[in-house]
Design a binder for these strands. Structure first.
Ligand code: ZN
Ligand code: ZN
Ligand code: ZN
Ligand code: ZN
Lengths: 140, 140
DNA sequence: TTATCAATTGATAATGAATCTAAATTACGA
DNA sequence: TCGTAATTTAGATTCATTATCAATTGATAA
């Protein structure tokens, strides 16, 4: 589960515990991302924050997301197009709507398939991507 | 299985059957890709062909790969980084080595996991990506 | 507090992938 | 052989991301 940080203090503690300086930019980015279930891109986060944080730079958003990734506070997703960032670092899969682009979390498949013919290859993690149409786009 | 076209004639027939003009560029790209098991990028194909085909342009490689994708003769892969192209259009999965980048075909998982909590979402296709270390990189 | 200093920031440049443009060429059917 | 629409090409263009680096600032200790 991803947690929404109620207080700056709580968010600041997370950063310091991870050995990162608690700057206002990082606090804002961490708080914005942690409550977000849409798997936003760096650009989207930037635009959302820039309104109330005029001096923020995209470079800082990228830097912070990379730092948060390093300390396991988020995880980048390569689904085609710009990278997306997921505050939910627990193992789970994704359903991607091919029409509207919505990305939905999917509980990790209970049956993690064990592929055959993978001799010699040591699997560290498995990614499952379900591509199709979300309820809205499917018409019904 | 992906087939290696022995003759230009055979490759030309494939293109025409798909409603595509059989240009020398397309023939070269189709033949180069069809025997390739490494999931090359557009750039890699371009470099490989440019040696014996000096006037070839990258734009043509991209155009041709898009055309071949439209007629189901190849399939683009988004695994992070530049798009890769797979001449094997039969359903199968991929194992990606996190050290050397090798991408290996994996027989489609026999147990296509049926995710729960996917209510309303109509799945068209599922992608499985196994990330880890190939035999060479795993040391032993 | 204040001083110190390495970490961080932000503006901008640089890179890389992919697409677009428009003019020149060409496959192929008449 | 000719005419024409499809295709190719080089270069410009867009978009995502990373690199650069001087200026700023958070954390720590005096
Ligand atoms: Zn949708
Ligand atoms: Zn997710
Ligand atoms: Zn390897
Ligand atoms: Zn493959």
């Amino acid at each position: 589960m991803n947690r929404i940080f109620q207080s700056e203090q709580e968010a600041a503690a997370v950063l310091r515990d991870a050995g990162l300086k608690a700057t206002p930019q990082r606090l804002a980015i961490l708080r914005a991302l942690s409550g977000d279930v849409t798997h936003p891109t760096a650009q989207e986060l930037y635009e959302r924050l820039a309104t109330h944080f005029p001096a923020l730079s995209v470079a800082t958003v990228y830097n912070t997301l990379a730092a948060l990734t390093r300390v396991e506070r988020c995880r980048p997703l390569d689904l085609g197009g710009p990278a997306r960032f997921d505050p939910n670092v627990a193992p789970h899969d994704h359903a991607v709507c091919e029409r509207c682009g919505e990305i939905r979390d999917v509980k990790a498949a209970e049956t993690r398939p064990k592929p055959r013919a993978l001799t010699g290859f040591s699997v560290r993690r498995v990614e499952h991507i379900y591509r199709g149409l979300c309820a809205k786009c499917a018409g019904t």
